[in-house]
Simulated scan of single mutants.
Amino acid sequence: MKLKIEGMSCGHCEKAVRDALQAVPGVTEVVRVSADDGQAQVSGEPDPAALVAALDEQGFDARVEA
């Protein structure tokens, strides 16, 4: 599942995103997080709304990409 994330600008942001996504039930792996293109990818069967909510709690605007 791919996500578009607004507000990531540095390595610290990438780590915060990675940690938040890994904590979501159903995520088996955070495959990729990139501040350069504002995207992340996870594997597993997480609830898309839970992914967005976890990132919102960290101060990032996110949406699941088709």
Rank of each mutant, 00 (worst) to 15 (best):
M1Q: 09
K2Q: 14
K2P: 00
L3M: 13
I5S: 09
G7T: 05
S9D: 02
S9F: 01
H12V: 10
E14G: 02
A16E: 10
R18M: 09
A20H: 01
A20Y: 01
L21Y: 04
L21K: 08
Q22F: 12
Q22K: 15
Q22P: 02
A23R: 13
V24T: 06
P25C: 12
G26D: 05
G26E: 06
E29V: 00
V31P: 00
V33Y: 04
V33K: 11
V33R: 10
A35E: 05
D36G: 10
D37H: 08
G38N: 10
Q39W: 01
A40F: 01
A40E: 01
A40V: 01
S43W: 00
G44R: 06
E45M: 10
P46F: 09
P46E: 08
D47E: 15
D47H: 11
P48M: 10
A49R: 14
A49L: 11
A49S: 14
A50S: 13
A50Y: 03
A50H: 06
V52N: 12
E57I: 01
E57M: 05
G59R: 06
F60K: 03
F60S: 07
F60H: 05
D61Y: 04
V64D: 08
E65W: 01
E65F: 00
E65Y: 00
A66M: 12
